[in-house]
């Protein structure tokens, strides 16, 4: 009976001697008299389902907590001047808009003209060694620097978005001449595009000043459209251009993240 030999061999290994193994063998053979239950396929399926639900919950909670952690961390890293300058510019824009005569064209409202520029200038200063003193530490963390930059972009953009929404809402409440949604729709797409473009330019040129300057010139042309020599420039506030602006914003962020990833790999190689 090979199984007895197998058992005996195991016992000799465990007990250290053949004599001891032979003394233990009779007891060991009785261990097989105690069968264990076998789970049914349904029970196994149920267990797999429970575990799969746990795995999904675990993943979502870890992704959410990672994102929240990164956002919190970026809050400390982003230069404080960006928050202060944005809040100051938006408050000023709302105050100036309130002093305007009723009947002023909605497209010329300072809030509409300032919101995209404010977001672009804030975001232009997010990337690059000058704007990122903690770059070396970021490269050593498990989170990809590309993800960190994306979180920072999101944080500043969300802040500017909230500011612009609050400014627009304040105007609607205090002035009463405009509705909220048409006002928001006017600046939202240009603001997103200009912010995305600023991000791409700062990744491309590394120097935030160049990025800020290009955005300033581009948006300046939009503002100067009111004057005949600049009327040929495409109107970013026109509703038929909005889908294109959204698309180009997506493209700019994608290219910028790809470039940032490449930059990050080169930096790691150099380190």
């Amino acid at each position: 009976m090979p199984h007895v030999d197998e058992l005996r061999a195991k016992l000799i290994e465990d007990a250290g001697s053949a004599a001891e193994a032979d003394r233990l063998l009779p007891a060991l053979r009785h261990l097989a008299d105690w069968p264990a239950p076998t789970p049914t396929a349904l029970e196994t399926d149920r267990l797999v389902q429970t575990l799969a639900a746990e795995l999904s919950a675990q993943r979502s909670s870890s992704i959410v907590s990672l994102m929240a952690g990164l956002l919190r961390a970026q809050l400390r890293v982003v230069q404080h001047e960006i928050w202060l300058a944005s809040a100051f510019v938006m408050t000023l824009g709302v105050l100036v808009t309130l002093t305007l005569q009723p009947g002023t064209s909605i497209e010329l409202l300072p809030v509409v003209l300032l919101a995209p520029l404010m977001a672009a200038l804030g975001i232009a200063f997010l990337y690059g060694p000058a704007a990122d003193p903690s770059l070396e530490i970021e490269l050593a963390t498990p989170a990809s620097p590309r993800l960190i930059v994306l979180m920072r972009l999101l944080l500043v953009f969300l802040f500017d978005l909230v500011l612009s929404l609050a400014g627009s809402a304040a105007l609607v409440v205090l002035q009463g001449s405009w509705s909220l949604w048409p006002l928001v729709a006017l600046w939202l797409a240009p603001m997103t595009f200009l912010a995305a473009l600023a991000f791409l330019l700062s990744v491309l040129f590394i120097d935030p000043l160049i990025s800020a300057l290009i955005c300033l010139v581009l948006w300046g042309l939009q503002v100067l459209r009111a004057f005949p020599p600049f009327a040929a420039f495409p109107d970013w506030l026109a509703s038929d251009l909005r889908p294109w602006l959204w698309l180009m914003a997506l493209l700019c962020v994608s290219v910028a993240l790809w470039l940032a990833g490449r930059e990050e790999r080169q930096l790691l190689k150099r380190i």
Binding site: A36, P37, P39, T44, L47, V48, L51, L55
Partner: peptide, 16 residues
């Protein structure tokens, strides 16, 4: 990939 892993070990682990 959870299912094959669990299917492999469920019965022996329950027995243990």
């Amino acid at each position: 990939d959870l299912a094959p892993l669990v299917e492999r070990h469920h019965s022996p682990l329950l027995g243990f």
